[in-house]
């Protein structure tokens, strides 16, 4: 199958890739670019494990045709730590609060929380739960995940 050239921003860096027109974003990320932090759960846009940020908004990468990211800015879980490898507040808070059990949904949870805190640094619990509502976790019962996002928002405030 013929390939198309595509440029976009990935985790702050300009990228150019050649892809077949039927490639879904998750497969480009995991198979071609080796970014396996983003997980494949249901592959049908339900579970949210594959969430990435497209121009800052959370989307399910498992059902997104890769061509749609042309000219846009994409952030994956690998893009959250800074150049020195220092973790994002949300990642740190997930560790501190013990918010992961099997860890499979964690990238999806963190990316949705990231989109929320970027827009609203001071969310209440209802807003946090709403922002995480598109990711299924089958282990934790969600309490510690919600708590981790609360903690992350407080950490952010302390730094500022």
């Amino acid at each position: 199958m013929s390939t198309t050239k595509l440029s976009f921003k990935l985790n702050g860096h300009s990228m150019e890739v050649a892809i077949a027109p039927n490639t879904l974003l998750i497969d480009l990320l995991r198979d071609d670019l080796g970014l396996t932090g983003t997980k494949v759960g249901c592959r049908e846009g339900e579970c949210g494990a594959c969430t990435v940020l497209l121009d800052g908004e959370p989307v399910n990468s498992c059902i997104l045709p890769t061509i749609k990211v042309a000219g846009r800015s994409l952030t994956t879980i690998e893009g959250l730590a800074n150049e020195e490898g220092e973790l994002d507040e949300i990642q740190q808070a997930f560790m501190d609060e013990g918010a992961a059990q099997c860890g499979f949904c964690t990238p999806g949870m963190i990316m949705n929380a990231k989109a929320l805190l970027n827009k609203n640094p001071n969310p209440d619990e209802a807003e946090i739960r709403q922002s995480l509502s598109g990711v299924l976790c089958r282990c934790t019962g969600y309490q510690k995940i919600v708590q981790a996002v609360v903690t992350a928002s407080q950490m952010k405030k302390l730094q500022e």
């Binding site: 846009g45 339900e46 949210g48 969430t51 497209l54 908004e57 959370p58 989307v59 399910n60 997104l64 949705n112 709403q130 922002s131 509502s133 598109g134 990711v135």
Partner: peptide, 9 residues
Amino acid sequence: VGSPQIRNI
């Protein structure tokens, strides 16, 4: 509808 990720798209 769906989830925040679905509603965005």
